[in-house]
Each structure stands twice: as C-alpha cells, then as structure tokens.
Simulated assay, not measured.
Amino acid sequence: MKIAALQMCSSMQVNENVDAIAMAAQAAASQGVSYLQTPEMSVMFAEKRTQLDEWATDENIEHTLKALADIARNNALYLHIGSMAVPSGDGRLYNRAFLFSPNGELITTYDKIHLFDADVEGDAPYRESDNYRPGEEAIVTPVGDLNLGLSICYDVRFAHLYAALREAEANVMAVPAAFTVPTGEAHWHCLLRARAIETGSFVVAAAQGGTHENGRHTYGHSLIIDPWGRILAEKAGNEPGLIIAPLDLDLIKEARMRLPTLANRREFSLSVNRHMS
C-alpha cells in the first residue's frame, strides 16, 4: 500500500488551499497512492478569532467538506484532512481532522486532545485554548489493511496517547502538524521517530512549512517513518510538495516481535520521597 503526505504553506484563502489539495490528490493517485494526508489547518491557516469565526459557519463548512469528499471520490483514495476549525457549541472551536473514504464518504473525525499553550523562545506566544476546545476521545479506524491512530501536532509530545492507540491495535500513527520553527528544529524528528519505535508502528506526518499570511513560520519536514524508526521519506525544508512511500506490513510484525514492548509492559506503584527506616 502506497501512502503520501502533502506539505503545504496554507493561506487564509480556502479555495486556494482546497485546489492545492485537489492537485496533490491527483498527482498521488497517478502514482498509485491509496492514502493521502494533509497538514494541520490545511484548509485555512488562520489564528485570529475574528478570522476563525468568519470561516467556521455551517455553510462554509458544508461546502468545503463536499469539495473534499469529491476530491477523495474523484481520485479513489483515502483523504485525511489533517484538521480544520469547526464550532464546538460552547463558543470555541474544535481543531478537527476528517477522514474520507475512496468513495467520498466521511469515515470518522478526530478532535485534537492536547492544546498548544506555550511560550516559545524566538516566536510569539501560543494560546490555542483561547480559541479551541480540547477533544476527549482517541480514535483508531481501519484504512484498507491498516489501522490508523489519529492525532494532531502537539499530541505527539504525549506518549501515553500513542500507547493507548497501540493497545487498540493501531499500526499507523497519523500526526498532521504545524510545528513552529524553534520547536521543529529541536524536537520534530526525534519525537516522531520515538512514537514509531515505542509503538512498533509507521508514522505519517504531513506538515505545514514556510511563512504564512498571518506572519507565523512553520517548520515543514514532512515525514514517513517505519516501525524501526527509519525515515522512509522526508520533504526536506519547508517547500510545498508530496512525499510517497510504500508500507510493508511485515515490518510492523518484525518490529513488534523483536521488541515486544506491549507484552513486556508491567504495572507499577510509585513512591515519592520514601524514606527507609
């Protein structure tokens, strides 16, 4: 099974971004790809609340989801939209991923669980929780012969999420992202390789890359990694484009037999400042 990740520098122009996804899907399908992942906030890369609220109307969302479903159906592939903003019902939004089947049906959605509230040196502060409501449910869903574990960007720093996905029989971890440049340079590759190694799973991480209309800078370096932590494909730098790799399911079995971490896992107690008398 061939899979692909699309690196983007998404703008705040929805039609422009959807057109870029459509072109990438056509190119991927022509090369035999059956699963295509786009980055976090690939449909519109907005940050200000006014921009998000203007975008996230029922009419806009319905129109965009129809266009994305058409892209999946027209190219007969699984289309995984890394995320887009949708209303949560409490005045904030969800950072939500959408997965479409090759016939254009919406298979499942996933709402980002861990929200990025951080002060990054060399960049403006991030307060994702000001605008977004966290999700509460981890998702594993079949994609052909694969079991896809869904996550988004900052989730990658929380290993217990991927342990839970692995226990639920996920064997491909999806990590669409929009990493900052400072954190990307420091942690992107090592975090993604760690998630692959510790779960014995493939990792697919489509990334935003470049300078966006709102002045944000994202790291790029989209990756596909095998269960032994080897990088199968990388979009070096932050230029837009596709990366494609075949997934050999035997590598999952091999990695999990060589390092059966799930079977070896033990429960334990914890003592803090325990003094022996």
Rank of each mutant, 00 (worst) to 15 (best):
A72Q: 04
G184W: 07
A168Q: 15
D130N: 11
A20I: 01
V143C: 08
Q51S: 14
D117H: 10
M276W: 13
M12K: 15
V18G: 02
L106C: 09
S129N: 13
T261I: 13
A5G: 14
R195H: 04
H187S: 14
G184R: 03
L99V: 03
N214H: 11
Y94H: 12
N147H: 12
E121A: 14
L223Q: 12
L68F: 06
I3L: 13
A245M: 02
I152C: 09
K235V: 00
A159L: 09
H275I: 15
G229C: 01
Q208P: 08
I231N: 04
S88P: 06
E234C: 09
G122T: 12
R157C: 13
G241A: 06
E213R: 11
E167T: 10
E137Q: 14
R256A: 00
D130L: 10
G91S: 07
H114D: 12
P134N: 04
R133L: 13
M173Y: 03
H212S: 06
H114W: 12
Q51P: 00
E239Y: 08
A245C: 06
P182V: 01
N131F: 13
A24Y: 01
I231L: 06
A124V: 10
S277I: 10
Q208G: 05
T211V: 14
L242M: 06
N17I: 04
R256M: 00
G135P: 03
C153R: 01
M173S: 06
L65W: 00
Y35Q: 01
E185D: 12
I61R: 05
I113N: 07
L259G: 01
I243P: 06
K2Y: 11
K112Q: 14
T199Y: 05
M173W: 03
R230L: 11
N95P: 07
P176I: 11
R157W: 14
H63R: 15
P125D: 08
F179R: 07
I107D: 02
A263F: 10
A205S: 13
L192G: 03
M173V: 09
A236H: 13
D90W: 07
